[in-house]
Design a protein around this nucleic acid. Structure first.
Lengths: 343, 343
DNA sequence: TTGTAGGCGTTATCAG
DNA sequence: CTGATAACGCCTACAA
């Protein structure tokens, strides 16, 4: 078992000083041709690689990014994550991931662990509980310490930092308009509780589209499901209400609802149309295939990572207190039309 | 912007030495009551937390685990990851994740980056390309350096390390037997190329079940799809062959095949049965719902993390070269029966 | 009871 | 051209 070799080892073996080795490996001009070659050859032979930890301690940065998300078994988040990872890697950063599991406490603990030097910056989507409690002290703490933070998707106005979000309200508006223009009149909204900024925004778009079309919003047609995937309430909903379209804030609600509607004998999309958010596997493989709003998670992730890394690297040469201006990037959602809506 | 406070800062402010502060914070017996209280109060006030990097450098371990998987937007892998993350967190470890994207080179690069001190051990599933090339030098390199490694799902006999796998062959055997016992005679297998150990094992189970039942294996009924989700070949397959059951090595193949069969006018499960591997979202929300083999990813992840951490922590007190024995844990798959098979 | 010194592996400054 | 020294932040054996 051959342990990793260090500068010191090389120095000892070659009978030169540590600093000579260090410089030689960096191809420094100060070092003589022969010494350089000798050192470099030896280093290659023994596969020397600098120890990341030592370098981090010295440089005060780790080249690690912390990502904190509510859930990992979730198409949208993994998509964003893939975008983050890809961009971060291309810039030489690694990604440490922590799952908050929709829990406030876990979110806090995870962030504290990472904030003690393990990472150079955070990218995160707020947990459900955090949005419910509306308590962002841990985020403010982190930014106060000068650790850059980028929020995506599940964001809040309470914290001053860079953000990346979908144009939730707009796209919901557009999509509902499309339903209305195709002749739909009784359009239900299947959503979650409103402490989620995204659900709130989508609902706003939904209401606005109805109102702008002269349709009175029937509060009965707005079904609020809990966020723990308990979708039993969908079934009875169809017994109680006559509807000809559904907008759902995620795939699961939409696909499950399609199943229920079909069981009740309704024809899709002749009798009823369905549109969901999150253009994932389910939308693609459901039958009929579900029309849904692509949230472009890859792009969101990439942009979030880019914003963060810029922030991180700007810090190194910062003139101290030059009034930082935070940006919010807005990604445009795209409706992918499939068989669950009339073309 | 209040930067993080260090032992040195506290020492200076309180006019004591750094080591006194260090000991006081550890509640050492050596330190006087008053000093301890003074230091601890100050530390709490300024929210002192030891710097992870410095501690890592000192202790020669990072409390980080490296996870390398082929894909993150993938139900099974995320499930395993969730198991890893959960267990690791409960033991005070963080998880750094790298995606190999089924690429050999990325796998190698990622591992090298992490192996330079960033992590205490690896958990990984081999990339497709790695299994194809059958080149495991990078894994051997890592274990040679004394970094513990646990392989899961996509494993190889070429590397000596702990492993966690599904009983792929057995469960495939059982499941095909079930199809046969329900009267199926022409059972197709939709799989990937055979350099994947899992596909290979599942195929072996499939063949064995047929043979044990006196059915001659018709090689024509084994459809090998490329691993890049290109499933166009499924459609023509149904035109060419008459079959009454399908075993697919993943959900996507199975659900897509169900769609094709239905389009050709076949009734599920009356005319044809379907069973897939990976009991994910698709299985649950397809119509009809797909019977599928639960791979218990959470459990695999948890066990993998447990094995790894035991290995890591055993190292600290190792008597050097006492003939390490590696284990392979086998997780039993479970068939979740749904509407795509006859009960 | 407190402090000093050395070291973890690397880098940068400065002296030789 | 090369090397000694200090520093990053923390820990600990040993000295005072």
């Amino acid at each position: 078992m051959r342990r990793k070799i260090t500068l010191k080892d090389i120095a000892r073996e070659l009978d030169v000083s540590i600093s000579t080795v260090s410089k030689a490996l960096k191809n420094s001009e100060e070092i003589g041709r022969d010494t350089k070659e000798k050192v470099q050859a030896f280093a290659k032979l023994y596969n020397y690689k600098p120890n990341n930890i030592a370098v981090s301690l010295k440089n005060k940065h780790t080249k690690n990014i912390g990502v904190v998300i509510p859930d990992i078994v979730h198409h949208f988040f993994t998509t964003v994550f893939r975008g983050i990872e890809k961009y971060a890697n291309s810039r030489g950063y690694n990604v440490i991931i922590c799952v908050s599991d929709e829990s406030f406490d876990k979110e806090v603990i995870n962030m504290e662990m990472l904030a003690n030097g393990s990472i150079d910056g955070f990218i995160m989507a707020l947990s459900g509980e955090t949005q419910l409690k509306n308590d962002y002290a841990h985020l403010k703490e982190v930014t106060n310490q000068g650790i850059p933070l980028v929020l995506f998707d599940r964001v809040t106005d309470e914290v001053n930092c860079d953000k990346v979000v979908l144009n939730d309200e707009e796209i919901a508006y557009e999509v509902v308009m499309k339903l209305i223009n195709s002749g739909r009149k009784r359009i239900a909204l299947f959503t979650t509780e409103n402490f989620f900024n995204v659900s709130k925004n989508r609902e706003d778009g939904y209401r606005k589209a109805l109102m702008d079309s002269g349709i009175v919003v029937d509060e009965e047609l707005i079904l609020r499901l809990p966020f723990n995937e308990n979708i039993d309430a969908i079934d009875p909903f169809f017994d109680k209400h006559t509807i000809d379209a559904v907008l759902a804030v995620n795939e699961i609600f939409a696909v499950h609802a399609m199943g229920v509607a079909q069981k009740k004998g309704m024809k899709i999309p002749d009798d009823i149309s369905f549109i969901g958010f999150t253009n994932g596997m389910l939308s693609k493989y459901a039958s009929p295939q579900l029309s849904s709003v692509a949230q472009h998670g890859d792009k969101m992730g990439e942009i979030a990572a880019k914003m963060l890394i810029e922030r991180i690297e700007a810090e190194y040469k910062e003139d101290e207190e030059e009034e930082v201006v935070y940006r919010t990037e807005i990604i445009k959602g795209t409706l992918i039309e499939r068989a669950s809506t009339i073309n």
